[in-house]
Structure formats: structure tokens, C-alpha cells
Nucleic acid binder design. Structure first.
Lengths: 138, 138
DNA sequence: ATCCGTGCAAATTATTTGCATATGG
DNA sequence: CCATATGCAAATAATTTGCACGGAT
């Protein structure tokens, strides 16, 4: 949260209750929620917060490099409070999105740069399939 | 195109002029177009073709495994006539989407399966950055 | 005090759906 | 012929925008 406040101040953005609440909600969630889910989670505590504010704040956080947007195969974005891009595992059965923390997939961008002449800012690696729990159930 | 016709027949789907035209347009394009772009390209030749038909056909092709949908960082889908998933390079400046044909990134899914216990059906690897042309211009 | 952020509602954009008609097998 | 595809228009879903008011610096 200090990180949020610092980053906001550094960029002449105001530190508001809403922004803190949105960031905290995202940070405390392990489910890579989308804007609407975040809004729903906030509603009990902050009934007046608007969905538009959630969208605007998330967009701001992404542009400040505070969080990352991940584009799962729905046509809605999910958000990850970890700003550093890392692979995700997406279960097609239960729709959960997990981080793949231990990854041997870190230096792909560098290899791609050498191969292509692109200057790569970001990589996105998603694996789609069934998680162990869903395999068992089926 | 033979592939399309074969696949459609195998699945008791009708071979229509529209479907052929949509598939051909996608195949002849190197730009990984979205539904609307495909529709626009078809319009001069087939003025009556509807956008809904384009959407429906693309969805059908994806479900038959004929093409793949790729989710670039807009919230609209782009389509790739190559059904086998492979890495993409996305230029943030000119918005082009290129295939990364020669890739040392092929066995990632297998590694991920071993690491996670997931059964992985598909992987998506996108690199975002600036292409050589756009680097030069800037 | 000033300007930015918020909430609301309306606008936009992308996609999906229902249904009557047309057409391929 | 008959079922499936198509085209149209309306519906839905996701996101963005404009603007007046309130609050942070």
C-alpha cells in the first residue's frame, strides 16, 4: 500500500480512499478478478463506489505500472496486483487463474528480441487447460 | 480451402459461399484481422454478407479447430488462420500482429504440465513491443 | 482555493441472439 | 424437401465518456 501511495504522489495523482480500497481489494484477492468483481467486493464496505471509478482506477494503476492487466480468453480483462509479468494458468473448467510462480520461462523476451529485432516491453504467457481438481472431478 | 470443405462436411455443416469467402479472406490476410475487418474486406465483393455471419462463422471455425482466436491487448479478438498455436509479436506502435515462426518456445506446455499437474490444452505466448520499422521511425 | 477524482447516467463498442427467409445436401 | 445458414435488427455485455459536485493538497 505504501507503494501505491508513493507511486500516486510521484505522479501527482491524488491519494483517495477509493484508490486505496481498490488496490487493497486486488492485492488481497488471489483470484485475478475483473473490474466488476472488484466492484462487487467493495460494495458492502463502500456502497457508493461506482463501477466507473473502479475502471478508471485500474486503468490508472496499469498505466503507472502498479498492476498488470491480463487478458484471459473471455473478452473481459482480469487484473493482477503483481506488476511484473509472469505466466498464468487458466482452468477452462472452473475458470480460475493461477500464477505460475516457479517458472523456467523468464528469458523468452530476450530470445525473441534477438530473433526478431523487436524491442520487447512485455510478454504474456498463458496456459489453458484443466487444473488437478477439475481433472479429478471429471 | 479443401481443408475447410472437408472439415465442414465431416461435421455435418453446410459448405456455403459465405463460409468459404470468410475463410479465404482470413487465409489471404497476413494481418490477423478481427471480425469487423474481415467483414469490411468482404463487403466490396459480397455486399450482402452480414457481420453476424462473420462472427458466427469464425466461432464455428474456432470450434472445429480450423483457425485460432488470439486475444491481443485490445478487447477484441483477432483471428489467425493457422490453427496451431504459436507465439505472436504485437507492435504497440503500428498495431500489427506477426507470427513468430521460428521459435524455441515450443515445449513450454509440457514443462508446465510437469510443474503444475494441469492438463494443458493450449498455450498463448505474446510479445508486446516495437517492431524494427517503428523503432527506426521514432 | 484550486484542481483532480468521483458518481451518475448516457454513449459507445463488441458481440450475441431471435426470427423469418433462403439455400445446400 | 428439410434442416441448417443467412441477414437483419434488436438485445446484451463490457467499457468509456461527459459533466457537475465534493474532497485532497
Amino acid at each position: 500500500m505504501n507503494k501505491l501511495i508513493e507511486k500516486l504522489k510521484d505522479n501527482d495523482c491524488k491519494v483517495t480512499l477509493q484508490r486505496i480500497a481498490i488496490y487493497e481489494t486486488l492485492k488481497d484477492s488471489n483470484s485475478h478478478p475483473n473490474a466488476e468483481t472488484i466492484h462487487k467486493e467493495l460494495s458492502p464496505k463502500y456502497p457508493t463506489i461506482s463501477l466507473a471509478t473502479v475502471y478508471k482506477s485500474l486503468e490508472l494503476f496499469v498505466s503507472l505500472g502498479l498492476i498488470q492487466a491480463i487478458n484471459v480468453e473471455e473478452n473481459s480483462f482480469r487484473y493482477d496486483w503483481k506488476y511484473k509479468s509472469h505466466p498464468h494458468l487458466i482452468c477452462s473448467a472452473c475458470k480460475k487463474v493461477e500464477d505460475l510462480e516457479i517458472h523456467p520461462f523468464s528469458n523468452l523476451s530476450h530470445e525473441a528480441e534477438i530473433l526478431t529485432g523487436y524491442s520487447i516491453e512485455k510478454q504474456q504467457l498463458n496456459f489453458y487447460g484443466s487444473c488437478p481438481d477439475c481433472i479429478e472431478t471429471s
